[in-house]
């Protein structure tokens, strides 16, 4: 989780990722950011987030994203 937060902070330093649950819905993350996150995550965790998992529910909060990563790691 810590590494993930670092990745996210790198992209937007001024967002409170602990509480924000509308990263996509409020347009805080755009598609460029999402791709950057996925690229970073893939090199950091060695897990590939497939295109069909790129939906608002998975990217609206840091927690949701972490859950996704754990799920993918588990498979």
């Amino acid at each position: 989780m810590e590494e993930l937060l670092n990745i996210l902070k790198d992209i937007h330093a001024d967002v409170d990722y602990d509480t924000c649950t509308t990263l996509i819905d409020d347009g805080i993350l755009d598609s460029f950011d999402i791709i950057s996150i996925i690229t970073e995550v893939s090199s950091e965790f060695d897990v590939q987030i497939p295109a069909n998992e790129i939906v608002p529910e998975n990217f609206n909060s840091a927690a949701a994203l972490w859950k996704l990563i754990e799920k993918l790691l588990d498979e």
Binding site: I35, I38, S43, Q48, I49, P50, A51, I54
Partner: peptide
């Protein structure tokens, strides 16, 4: 275009390789 081209393209293994 985003869902069916942009995302799959940018997260494809090939693209991740290019990125690396």
């Amino acid at each position: 275009f985003k869902d069916y081209i942009f995302y799959p393209l940018s997260v494809s293994p090939k693209m991740l390789k290019i990125s690396k």
